[in-house]
Design a protein around this nucleic acid. Structure first.
Length: 270
DNA sequence: GTTTCTGTTGTCAC
DNA sequence: CGTGACAACAGAAA
């Protein structure tokens, strides 16, 4: 699930469900998702405090909490990463539990913010300072949603790797994952194995246009929408074809991930 | 029924 | 810089 559009959806869920509300109870059903924090400390630091405005960077959700709590330290920040299968939902107390529910925060109005994740590849952190937030996130490029054309040009120029690897490298651009990367390259008609540094000005311009278009629609949908007219709508077909020209799609591993592209619309050249 | 493969994540060793 | 292994797990394929 989670790439930038999904996480942006989770941020909105947190805003509408929990921002300004007091956390009454923290329940951890699987400590396997807690990173660098114990259940006890999570409860002590969160219970009694209120969610302030959350923010997002790339695929990370950053949720400061404020107000007095049991602990003597300053106001902490809850940090969430959703791996491949994580998610955040808003439910009412008493609603049936999520299939892979891991952490439930009960709020002062009876709503619950629930973190669920099948595979537990990532999880929840509790940062104590801004520097701590930065340490947990690690090296991050600018968020893909705020990327200007000139900025993307600068980031792409002089890179040696393949363009698919560059676009999905979080330390270059934050937020693009495997699906978005393929979708953007397909729309821009750029072969995923092209050498990033070899791209011409026109290809870089097309990439930026495609990035903006794909992100705009995806953020609105809260996911990369598997539309019939999009590449994403066909990658799981038994015999996938390009929705633009009808040619069979090609698949291959790039940067350790399965990529899909159209050999006709995205001619090989590097 | 059982084994193998795949995957919208990131990190680490070679 | 690139590749492969790994982490943890369900569901599909073999």
């Amino acid at each position: 699930m989670p790439e930038l559009p999904d996480v942006e959806g989770f941020r909105r869920t947190l805003v509408s469900c929990a921002q300004g509300h007091r956390i009454e109870q923290v329940e951890v059903f699987d400590p396997g998702v807690l990173r660098e924090v114990t259940t006890e400390r999570l409860k002590r630091e969160l219970e009694g405090r209120r969610f302030a405005a959350p923010r997002r960077h790339g695929k990370w959700l950053i949720a400061p909490v404020e107000g007095p709590a049991g602990g003597p330290v300053g106001e902490p920040t809850l940090i969430l990463h959703f791996g491949m299968t994580g998610g955040l939902v808003c439910r009412s107390e008493g609603d049936p539990p999520e299939r892979f529910g891991r952490v439930v925060l009960t709020l002062d109005d009876g709503h619950q913010l629930r973190y669920h994740d099948q595979r537990k590849l990532r999880g929840l952190w509790l940062a104590t300072t801004e520097a701590d937030v930065d340490r947990i996130l690690g090296a991050q490029g600018p968020d893909a949603l705020t990327l200007g054309r000139g900025e993307l040009d600068t980031l792409l120029e002089g890179r040696r790797g393949r363009v698919k690897a560059t676009l999905t490298d979080q330390s270059v651009v934050a937020g693009l994952g495997n699906l978005l990367g393929d979708e953007i390259l397909w729309r821009a008609r750029v072969h995923p194995k092209s050498r990033t540094g070899d791209l011409g000005p026109d290809e870089r311009r097309r990439l930026h246009t495609a990035l903006r278009g794909v992100l705009r629609t995806s953020v609105r949908a809260g996911r990369v929408p598997p539309r019939p007219s999009w590449l994403t709508g066909h990658r799981d077909d038994p015999d996938p074809h390009c929705p633009r020209c009808g040619r069979p799609l090609r698949r291959g591993k790039i940067a350790g991930r399965t990529s899909a592209w159209c050999p006709r619309c995205q001619p090989e050249r590097s």
